[in-house]
Amino acid sequence: MSSIQATDLTGASLGTRVGSGIRSVLTSPKYGPVLVTAVLFAAVFVVGGIRYEGFFSGQVFLNLLVDNAYLIVLAVGMSFVILTGGIDLSVGAVVALSTIIAASLLQSGWSPGVVIPLILVLTSVLGLAVGLMIHVFQVQPFIATLAAMFLARGLCYVISKDSISITDPAFVALAVTRIPLGGGLSITPSVIIALVVVLVAVVVLHYTRLGRTVYALGGSEQSGRLMGLPVARTKVLVYVISGFCSGLAGVLFSFYTLSGYSLTAVGTELDAIAAVVIGGTLLTGGYGFVLGSVLGVLVLGVIQTLITFEGTLSSWWTKIFIGGLLLVFIILQKVLTARRR
């Protein structure tokens, strides 16, 4: 746990020294919400550790990653979009579409080596179409991605109404393999993939002009244009990235469930958005970190775990907690940005 916090701080301070007083950091719209989330995550983990035997273990933490690898990838893609001030409602449906394409193609004997790249290309192209719609026709991201959501969900039913299980040996192998970390701890390949995605996203966002332009877009599109930044290209590209991440998340999800089903991942786009917002990214764009979004996913996960450990509570309590958290975080963001104005 502490390692995650440490990573987060390094990520947060890339290109900046925190230094100048904890107070100013805590009240900055840039770092404040992320730090609050980090503290929250630690607190929930500690509370769980005190209340329940066996909670405070490395494997419980690693299982957060194992269970939520797909959501981490989704949240990374969503972070790009939200950082520009946009939104992508299509990701849940695209995850479902990816699982069902994977399952049905594997069922008809395609090799996973073809199926997975194909899915990634298809979902990226869908993202491209959405991005172009938003940029060229000036459609609101909300509407454009809503349309994409219905399209993707509808396509699922065209492919199959029923759940298709995945039996391809290579796929199953990827799904069940456990990579031992020593000390009885282990993770799945999905976790590795998710962490690689996170790493790449951090580098892109903080060390490339594309990444900085993403932040610039969230700050002010108009200013970005006057400053001579490639506004149009970047705006389209974030939806391609989100599409790609949705496809990849779909693949990871099908590792996790070993099936493809039209009705799967309903509402997952909202989980991803919640994770990004709880992770400290401003919904209006311009402020936020990918590592914050990862932290957001972990907060969602740890609440879920806590409720599982509690045993007597229905899993719907997760939703109630998340709802409350979201409210708190959105108000926090409002306060922080208002103070800065």
């Binding site: 890339l14 290109g15 900046t16 719209p29 840039k30 580098v203 903080h206 060390y207 490339t208 002009r209 900085r212 332009t213 932040y215 610039a216 969230g218 700050g219 002010s220 108009q222 200013s223 970005g224 006057l226 400053m227 001579g228 930044l229 311009g286 402020y287």
Partner: peptide, 27 residues
């Protein structure tokens, strides 16, 4: 002012012209 309040002063001055090394921004 047509700049970006959410980024640092340094970035606002240099954005789009940042010196780069191996394709990544040399902060």
């Amino acid at each position: 002012v047509n700049l970006l309040p959410n980024l640092t002063v340094a970035e606002n001055i240099m954005l789009g012209r940042e010196p780069r090394r191996f394709g990544v921004v040399d902060w």
